[in-house]
């Protein structure tokens, strides 16, 4: 849905979207990152805003394919700052943002590759001295240097915020889904390369990185004096298997059983 965006002095409202190369959770193929694509979608749904996409990262075929995924959404080009794969992209991004000086920067909450700490927007905001706001669900209006936005809270709730611009806002999966990426515009769109010296992230080299292990399921710890109770709790199967079947019950009894289950699962609030 297009939003009303009135910039202060009639000039086009400029939005930069920081996009990264995503990674499909099942096949690990490079793709447009889900949150970043939603950020692009949000930027494109702003009426009359000039949208610029910025990517900092390494420059191989797989990542080019992924970046073209963003172009396929109908953006004419992506500014690509080539960086070494172990580089810290914050200096490069700070530099280009300071130069481009957009009123609003949108980006995903965290990257799908690398550390994925979600720190980049905060670091950028700190170094540029801009406001940062997280979990945007919608931009309601932008007027006179103040954006009114809806922030997504858990369970579909929303909070209305007013943000003084320029600002960096992150977008997560509560934002509207990204539009389809079409082949034609993706093929036509341009990747403009800009250079910026890579600043190697030294700390990361000391880390030990391995594929995620499955986290152990937490056991219910029974603080019982009796050895039998503790043994029983430790040995009990998590699920007893077959479900419970209540037939020939009054509606009230049935409702009570369901209610108990809902309460146990903590979905009633």
């Amino acid at each position: 849905m297009p939003r009303n965006v009135k910039s202060l002095n009639g000039a086009g409202f400029s939005v930069s979207v920081l996009v990264s190369v995503g990674r499909h959770p099942l096949t690990a193929r490079a793709r447009r990152a889900d949150h970043d694509a939603r950020a692009v979608e949000m930027a494109l749904s702003l009426n009359d805003a000039s949208v610029q996409l910025i990517h900092a990262g390494d420059n191989d075929t797989a990542s080019e394919e992924a970046l073209r995924g963003y172009l396929g959404m109908g953006v004419s080009g992506v500014k690509r700052i080539e960086q070494a794969s172990n580089a810290d992209v914050v200096p490069a991004l700070t530099n280009i943002l300071r130069f481009a000086a957009p009123q609003l920067v949108l980006t995903g909450t965290r990257a799908e590759t690398g550390e994925g700490s979600g720190l980049v927007p905060y670091l950028l905001a700190e170094s540029l001295g801009w406001t940062v706001v997280s979990g945007l669900a919608e931009i309601e209006s932008i007027e006179q240097g103040v954006a009114t936005v809806l922030q997504a809270l858990p369970r579909g709730k929303r909070r209305r915020l007013q943000v003084r611009l320029p600002a960096i806002a992150t977008v997560d999966s509560s934002a509207p889904a990204a539009r389809q990426s079409a082949f034609g515009p993706a093929r036509r769109g341009e990747l403009t390369d800009c250079a910026y010296a890579s600043v190697i992230d030294e700390l990361q080299t000391q880390w030990h990185i391995q594929p995620a292990r499955k986290r152990p399921k937490r056991l219910k710890i029974v603080k019982s004096a009796s050895a039998r109770d503790r043994f029983k709790a430790a040995a009990a199967k998590a699920d007893s298997g077959g479900g419970q079947l209540l037939s020939d019950v009054t509606p009230e009894q049935g409702a009570e059983a369901i209610f108990t289950l809902l309460k146990e699962e903590g979905v009633l609030r």
Partner: peptide, 22 residues
């Protein structure tokens, strides 16, 4: 589909799946 990216309903999702997971 190729120029406008307007495959309706679940079309976009199915195509994305085909690209990402075959």
């Amino acid at each position: 589909t190729l120029e406008r990216g307007k495959t309706p309903n679940k079309g976009a999702e199915v195509l994305d799946n085909l690209i990402a997971t075959d």
